[in-house]
Simulated scan of single mutants.
Amino acid sequence: MSNSIYDFRASRLNGEEEQLEVYRGKVLLIVNTASECGFTPQYAGLETLYRNLGVRGLVVLGFPCNQFGAQEPGDAAAIGQFCQANFGVSFPMFAKIDVNGDNAHPLYNYLKHEAAGLLGTEAIKWNFTKFLVDRNGQVVERYAPATKPEELTPAIEALL
């Protein structure tokens, strides 16, 4: 098992591989997203957090996932267009991944192990599950999909 978030890499929406090491020293909010979910309007709140707290060191990382109700059917271009057109998303968005199961992205296996959900379960339950990571790459907290991004402001500010 890895020691920190920085041991992982992921593909951006444009297909470029990115080592998460580039975010060393930042506070990260990592979210599995979807374009056709009841929680999709949270993109607006995530973007607000990124714009307001980014100058202090917050980076939101979005990971589209189609494992919950097939609510992210589009390809990378469609996802990028949707996020930009509807929510003005400027935070880093990554290529569509699985967060559960045999093909789960290694980053998500790590996140789930470091911050289990209710009753110690590791599986992601739905879109817009959020993981807060400190400046040292350690997972601090896991938040349920229903938790609105703005509700995370105090916890994020405590790490900034």
Rank of each mutant, 00 (worst) to 15 (best):
17 E>R: 12
57 G>Q: 10
24 R>W: 08
3 N>Q: 15
22 V>Y: 01
75 D>R: 10
102 D>T: 13
29 L>D: 08
126 W>G: 03
91 F>E: 04
133 V>S: 12
34 A>N: 01
46 L>T: 01
39 F>E: 09
46 L>G: 03
131 F>D: 06
140 V>S: 03
89 V>A: 07
36 E>V: 00
152 L>C: 08
60 V>D: 00
23 Y>V: 02
41 P>D: 11
111 L>I: 11
123 A>S: 13
148 K>D: 12
137 G>R: 09
38 G>K: 09
58 L>G: 05
100 N>H: 06
118 L>S: 13
79 I>N: 00
153 T>I: 13
133 V>D: 11
78 A>Y: 01
157 E>K: 13
89 V>M: 06
8 F>N: 00
10 A>D: 04
46 L>R: 03
87 F>T: 03
2 S>F: 07
83 C>A: 15
128 F>S: 04
76 A>K: 00
103 N>T: 14
125 K>S: 14
86 N>H: 13
56 R>F: 12
19 Q>C: 06
57 G>Y: 12
152 L>T: 08
70 A>F: 07
154 P>C: 11
34 A>E: 01
147 T>K: 11
71 Q>Y: 07
94 F>M: 05
117 G>D: 09
5 I>N: 00
77 A>I: 10
116 A>S: 13
41 P>S: 03
7 D>L: 01
88 G>L: 06
63 F>A: 00
43 Y>M: 08
127 N>A: 07
104 A>W: 05
41 P>K: 01
36 E>R: 15
38 G>F: 08
119 L>F: 15
126 W>Y: 09
102 D>H: 13
56 R>L: 12
150 E>T: 04
19 Q>V: 04
46 L>W: 03
151 E>V: 07
25 G>D: 07
120 G>K: 07
79 I>D: 00
50 Y>S: 15
94 F>Q: 01
119 L>H: 13
115 A>P: 01
102 D>M: 10
47 E>L: 08
82 F>R: 02
91 F>H: 09
7 D>Q: 14
148 K>S: 14
22 V>I: 13
100 N>I: 10
156 I>Y: 05
108 Y>T: 06
49 L>G: 02
155 A>M: 09
158 A>G: 06
72 E>H: 10
45 G>R: 07
2 S>C: 04
157 E>W: 02
48 T>Q: 15
21 E>H: 12
140 V>M: 14
15 G>K: 09
11 S>I: 00
159 L>Q: 14
31 V>W: 08
96 K>P: 10
46 L>K: 05
103 N>S: 15
82 F>I: 04
15 G>N: 11
144 A>M: 13
88 G>A: 14
